[in-house]
Amino acid sequence: MMVNERLRASIDVAPRTAAFYEHVITALEEEGVPFMLGGAFAFEVYTDIGGRTKDLDLFLHPRNVKAAMAALNRRGYDTEMKAEHWLGKIKSGEDFVDVIFGSGNGLAVVDDVWFEHASPAEVLGHEVRLIPAEEMLWSKSFIMERERFDGADIAHLIRVAGRTMDWRRLVDRFGRFWAVLLAHVVLFDFIYPADRGRVPDWVRGELLGRAGDGAVDQAAVDERVCFGTTLSRAQYLPDVEGWGYRDGRLKPFGLLGETDIEHETERMRKELGL
Rank of each mutant, 00 (worst) to 15 (best):
H263T: 10
A27L: 11
G257H: 04
V171S: 04
V24F: 03
G102L: 01
E31L: 08
V3R: 05
A27I: 12
W167L: 12
I11Y: 00
N64I: 01
E147T: 03
V180Q: 05
V203I: 14
D260F: 07
A219E: 15
G248D: 04
H61Q: 09
R267A: 15
D111L: 08
A14S: 14
V225E: 02
L237W: 09
G175L: 05
M165V: 10
F253A: 12
G228R: 07
D112Q: 11
W243H: 15
W243S: 06
G32Q: 13
L272F: 13
R75A: 06
E29H: 08
P132H: 10
R224Y: 05
Y46T: 12
R246A: 13
L157W: 02
T53A: 06
T79F: 10
E122F: 10
I25H: 00
E5P: 00
V97A: 04
L7Q: 03
G228Q: 13
R196F: 11
G38R: 04
A42D: 09
G51E: 06
A121Y: 07
V24W: 00
D201V: 09
H85P: 01
L137T: 05
K140I: 13
M1Y: 03
V45R: 00
L87N: 05
E147H: 14
Y46A: 06
L58K: 02
P193I: 11
V45S: 04
L181I: 03
H23S: 14
L28T: 01
M36K: 03
R204H: 14
H263A: 14
T79G: 09
G32A: 11
R16G: 14
D98E: 15
W202I: 10
R168F: 10
G244T: 03
W138A: 14
G106Q: 02
D95S: 07
R146L: 09
R159Q: 12
G273K: 03
A19G: 07
I100F: 03
P238H: 10
L237F: 00
F149V: 11
S139I: 03
I49R: 08
G50M: 06
R63C: 14
L208A: 07
H126L: 11
G212W: 02
L274M: 13
S10G: 11
F253V: 11
P238M: 08
G51N: 12
L157M: 15
G151W: 00
S232E: 06
T259M: 13
V99Y: 00
D98G: 02
V186C: 11
V45G: 01
N4A: 15
G93T: 06
D98I: 07
V221T: 07
F177Y: 15
N105P: 02
D189V: 10
W243E: 15
G214S: 10
V180K: 06
R168Y: 04
G228F: 05
G242T: 09
R74C: 11
F142Q: 09
L137D: 04
G257T: 10
R6H: 12
D201I: 04
V185M: 12
F43V: 03
E134G: 00
D48T: 10
G162M: 04
R8F: 12
R148H: 07
I100T: 04
L56S: 02
A194K: 11
A27C: 15
A215W: 06
A18R: 14
I261W: 00
V65G: 01
C226P: 05
G125K: 07
